[in-house]
Amino acid sequence: MKTNDLILQTVTKVATFVIVLFSIHIFFAGHYTPGGGFIGGLMTSSAIILLLLAFDLKTVKAILPVNYLLLVAVGLVFAVGTGTGALFFDAPFLTHAYHYFDLPLFGHTSLHTAVLFDTGVYLVVIGVTMTIIQTIGESE
């Protein structure tokens, strides 16, 4: 039977961008509003899963040539790195700091080292979810 996925694939192309944008928004807005690294990562991986549903595993691997196990390792390094970074400034482990900066495009912005920790959470969540899905999807 010939498959015809035109409608699903076309809508997926638009919807994936919306989901990824919204997940990035949720990730960065996590400090002041509900959200953060965990659900941001889950939403990003759900966008990738939508791509997996509309296309097949090989195509998605060609679009996103990411080793998800490596992504987990990088995320853990981010989390541990922000923790040990505090030790160099004579503060206890996992002490965070923030300061106000005048960025060229964003203006007066407060930058917090907790964002780096959240980036670690984000990467680990994407890596773990995609590893689980791909491992189950590949096994016959």
Partner: peptide, 20 residues
């Protein structure tokens, strides 16, 4: 803007779900 995005997203995806 999230509600507007939600309106756009539901309008885009719900009929496709019915189709599938």
């Amino acid at each position: 803007i999230r509600l507007l995005l939600g309106i756009f997203f539901v309008f885009l995806t719900a009929p496709v779900a019915g189709h599938i």
